[in-house]
């Protein structure tokens, strides 16, 4: 062993920081257990597809009803929570986030890199499972709307959970509180909250893109279809800005603390 010496350096162009963080997110943030935790709710989506077959209704209507509650209200938030926690909160708790934070990388690149990394995981797990559930339910025409709604909803959720990871150490607990208390309880009662909720907006995207959705799934005061896509993307952007603001002020006191 010897001290670091400086022989003639071979010029080399390093990967951009954004790409490096994206690659790192895939390599480091998703060990096997995490993949299992992400895939389990996705399997649940397929089971909801099977459940829709058992409902005594037309396949499209049956799947729409089951998907609205089961997939967009349960599977998508849970799977996205695991992903969102994996890409930031888990690393902060474990004490290994300093490898990224203690670099000259601007915080917005860290947030964006982690979000893109987590979102791509969501796009290859949650969204396809939602589409596949439609096929399993015997409603292939719903597969496209289900895919789009799950994709947009889950990337919005990943952003939300990253922001929560920047705000608190107990990411999983606060994320569950956000999903089940703020979105499910308050969102069901208050349209103003539902308008900003990934669950409700994803459901509205799905309903808006269906040819003939059941009437009970329409909710007044919430944009549907492509309007809901735009709404959710704006929410995502705002949440990422908040995450970046908090990221600059993180106190990383180590795994032991």
């Amino acid at each position: 062993m010897s001290a670091v010496t400086q022989p003639v350096a071979r010029p080399w162009r390093p990967r951009s920081r954004l790409v490096a963080i994206f690659v790192y997110t895939w390599q480091a943030c998703f060990p096997r257990k995490r993949w299992a935790a992400v895939l389990m709710p996705c399997v649940g989506a397929l089971l909801f597809g099977l459940l829709a077959r058992a409902v005594d209704d037309l396949p499209d209507a049956a799947f729409a009803n089951v998907a609205a509650e089961g997939i967009f209200g349960l599977v998508m938030p849970i799977a996205a929570l695991v992903i969102g926690d994996s890409v930031l909160g888990a690393e902060i708790r474990a004490g290994s986030f300093h490898f990224t934070w203690l670099s000259p990388t601007p915080t917005w690149q860290i947030v964006l890199g982690r979000w893109v990394g987590g979102s791509t995981v969501a796009l290859v797990t949650i969204a396809p499972s939602a589409a596949l559930a439609a096929v399993v339910a015997g409603s292939p025409s719903s597969a496209g709307p289900a895919f789009v709604a799950a994709a947009v909803g889950s990337v919005a959720y990943v952003a939300v959970f990253i922001a929560i990871g920047c705000l608190t150490r107990r990411t999983a607990v606060w994320s569950l509180a956000f999903v089940f208390l703020v979105e499910r309880l308050l969102g069901a009662a208050l349209t103003g909250i539902a308008q900003l909720s990934p669950t409700w907006e994803a459901r509205a995207i799905f309903v808006g893109l269906l040819d003939d959705p059941p009437n009970r799934l329409h909710r007044s005061g919430i944009p549907e279809g492509t309007d809901a896509v735009v709404r959710l993307l704006v929410v995502t952007a705002v949440v990422l800005v908040i995450a970046n603001w908090r990221m600059r002020r993180l106190r990383l006191s180590g795994a032991a603390d």
Partner: peptide
């Protein structure tokens, strides 16, 4: 802290740090 990103190899970890710090020496 003992915490390290367990899923990375040692080379990947060091390379990641080099990328974040824009190290231009291959």
């Amino acid at each position: 802290d003992e915490a390290v990103p367990g899923g990375l190899t040692a080379r990947q970890l060091v390379r990641y740090m080099a990328d974040l710090r824009r190290v231009t020496d291959r």
